[in-house]
């Protein structure tokens, strides 16, 4: 087996007295995919932020592509080096793009910062909007002219621009309508097939994780309560919390009040 792309060992994050993340470990193989599920407040976003260097772990170790990334990058050189390995797409489609920047400008700026020659950025920006299934003319649009789903496609295109080896999607479809969610999830599966990028998919919704990830960890109060292959865990959950999560998802035949209350 090849070396893992991302290794998280015994991650812990405290905010004052609150332990947001407690002894979390996992690995993601190159081209692999990991789901992180848990209800709101279980520490999923905090894990994601530590991985991308937006938060400093209180304890634990992060390795990405063989280099130690436990602490946030010092200086922008290291920051931009790490940017080549790992990217993130946030939840809120309305604030994750600079409102003043057109889609084309946003994409070209990432490419320029990543060191792509200016003459090649235009072609690459076109490729990227095509990759996320959008027409070329959106390159000239401001975020305010786009719908939530379109903005999220742009955010995904931006995250993929520099061909990172892994992308974290932190509740990236949660704010969207169900039909749009399905489109984006299909898109992600499609992109993965074409580019071989690895995913870490963070969601409170089991159905979302099921479609896209091979492995899953279930978090509660900052700690992992169950882990395994996605299909196995979701079909035959061992931990009562996972069962609870599964039952609280509305599905055909679901009767109000019959499921567990959370």
């Amino acid at each position: 087996m090849t070396d893992p792309l991302i290794v998280a060992r015994n991650l812990r994050k405290e905010y004052g007295d609150l332990v947001a993340v407690d002894d979390v470990s996992f690995e993601v193989a190159p081209g692999g995919s990991l789901g992180i599920v848990g209800e709101s407040g279980s520490g999923k976003t905090t894990v994601a932020k530590m991985l991308v260097g937006l938060e400093r772990p209180t304890a634990g170790r992060i390795e990405i592509a063989g280099t130690d990334c436990s602490a946030p990058a010092k200086g922008w050189r290291e920051r931009s080096r790490r940017a080549q390995s790992l990217q993130i797409v946030f939840q809120d489609p309305y604030s994750s793009l600079d409102p003043r920047q057109s889609v084309g400008d946003a994409l070209r700026e990432v490419l320029v910062v990543a060191g792509l020659g200016r003459d090649r950025t235009q072609a690459r920006a076109r490729e990227l909007v095509d990759l996320v299934g959008m027409p070329e003319r959106v390159l000239g649009s401001r975020p305010s002219a786009l719908s939530g789903g379109q903005r999220q496609r742009v955010a995904i295109a931006r995250a993929l621009a520099t061909e990172p080896r892994c992308v974290i999607l932190d509740e990236s479809v949660a704010a969207l309508d169900v039909s749009i969610q399905a489109q984006i999830l299909n898109l992600l599966a499609d992109i993965r097939e074409r580019t071989g990028v690895a995913y870490i998919l963070v969601s409170h919704d089991l159905a979302v994780v099921r479609h896209v990830t091979d492995d899953v960890i279930v978090m509660r109060y900052g700690a992992i309560v169950e882990r395994g292959q996605t299909g196995t865990v979701l079909d035959d959950p061992q931990h009562p919390y996972t069962q609870l999560l599964r039952e609280s998802v509305p599905r055909p035949g679901w009767v109000p009040g019959a499921g567990a209350t959370t």
Partner: peptide, 21 residues
């Protein structure tokens, strides 16, 4: 705002984020 966080993850320098965005 999340776009600021996103730019940090994308490797933009502090000066670029603050001055340009």
């Amino acid at each position: 705002m999340e776009y600021v966080k996103a730019f940090r993850v994308m490797g933009y320098s502090d000066v670029r984020i603050v001055v340009r965005h």
